[in-house]
Amino acid sequence: MNIRGDHLTEREERILRCIRDSIAERGEAPSVREIGRSVGLSSPASVVYHLDQMEQLGVIRRTERRGAGKGIALG
């Protein structure tokens, strides 16, 4: 396990930008697949890993919501 303190990685910064842009433009968060396409991750599991890390840092919040809003909100 990599101990990284309370900083986002470069990829997580790009994911955060993708989420912010989507919320600003469409009024909802992108899907995991949309995030992956935006930041160059082909595996949804990789995106979920980064979202988990970001949630632990308090940068985003996730709910059980599925579908259009994807349950992602900014921290």
Rank of each mutant, 00 (worst) to 15 (best):
N2T: 10
N2R: 12
N2Y: 03
G5H: 02
G5I: 02
L8P: 11
T9W: 01
T9H: 04
E10W: 02
R11P: 00
R11L: 15
E13L: 12
E13S: 05
E13Y: 01
R14I: 00
R14D: 11
I15M: 14
C18I: 02
I19Q: 02
D21P: 00
D21T: 15
D21R: 15
I23R: 05
I23A: 02
I23D: 03
A24P: 00
A24N: 12
E25R: 15
R26Y: 15
R26S: 12
R26N: 15
G27N: 11
G27K: 12
A29T: 10
E34T: 13
I35Y: 02
I35N: 02
I35R: 06
I35P: 09
R37C: 04
S38T: 14
S38C: 15
S38Y: 01
V39W: 07
V39H: 07
G40A: 05
L41W: 01
S42F: 09
S43R: 14
S43K: 14
A45D: 14
V47L: 06
V48N: 08
Y49P: 01
Y49A: 11
H50Q: 08
L51F: 10
D52W: 01
D52P: 00
D52M: 02
D52Q: 14
G58H: 03
V59Y: 01
R61M: 07
R62N: 10
T63C: 07
T63Y: 09
E64I: 11
E64A: 14
E64V: 09
R65Y: 02
R66L: 13
R66S: 12
G67C: 06
G67W: 06
G69E: 14
G69D: 14
G69P: 07
G71K: 09
I72K: 06
A73P: 00
A73W: 08
L74M: 14
L74D: 04
G75L: 06
G75S: 06
